[in-house]
């Protein structure tokens, strides 16, 4: 006779996957957004930080597709976690080495005719999260973006 199972507390909701692997294609953007925003909300990130999170996600995914893979097919892996109170979004791809943290900010004071929209994505990534780091590991680009609970607007936070 098997021993009676000890009384167990109500089982928590099964954790939804904190990792998502997709083909690196713009058509997957809505699905990626839903995944990341869902994880962030579950982790308690304030609603005011979600637009910045969505922006970081899009700009990073566009970079992977256009710079990392340069239009070639490839995969993109997203991971979300909470670490020391930060909500952490990590993107990994197998494209060409590309360090978005190393590029200079575009000159946003140039007159109209000299302005291009190049580099703005990287600027928006840096301004929308609290910390962004890049590393090359095992043939992959790994971009890590951290979001704290404090800031709620990308123009009101601390600037690098």
């Amino acid at each position: 006779m098997t021993p009676a199972k000890p009384h167990s507390p109500p089982s928590p909701e099964p954790p939804s996957p904190a990792r998502l692997v997709v083909t690196a294609d713009l058509s997957r953007l809505p699905e990626l957004r839903e995944f990341v925003v869902g994880r962030a909300a579950a982790a308690g990130l304030p609603p005011g930080r979600l637009p910045g999170l969505e922006l970081v996600l899009e700009e990073a995914v566009v970079n992977v597709i256009s710079h990392g893979y340069d239009g070639r097919p490839g995969t993109l892996e997203l991971a979300c976690r909470v670490e020391n109170g930060w909500f952490v979004l990590e993107l990994a791809d197998e494209g060409a080495p590309f360090d978005p943290t190393g590029a200079a900010d575009p000159d946003t004071s140039l007159p109209l005719e000299e302005r291009s929209a190049g580099g703005l994505g990287l600027l928006l990534i840096r301004r929308s999260c609290d910390a962004v780091t890049w590393r090359r590991e095992g043939g992959r680009n790994i971009l890590t973006c951290r979001f704290g609970r404090e800031r709620d607007a990308l123009s009101s936070g601390r600037r690098p």
Binding site: L55, T108, S109, L110, P111, L112, R115, L120, L123, L124, R127, A153, L154, S155
Partner: peptide, 12 residues
Amino acid sequence: REVFDVSGFASI
């Protein structure tokens, strides 16, 4: 508005 500000578009 924030994206326009950060990018400098608000001054163009």
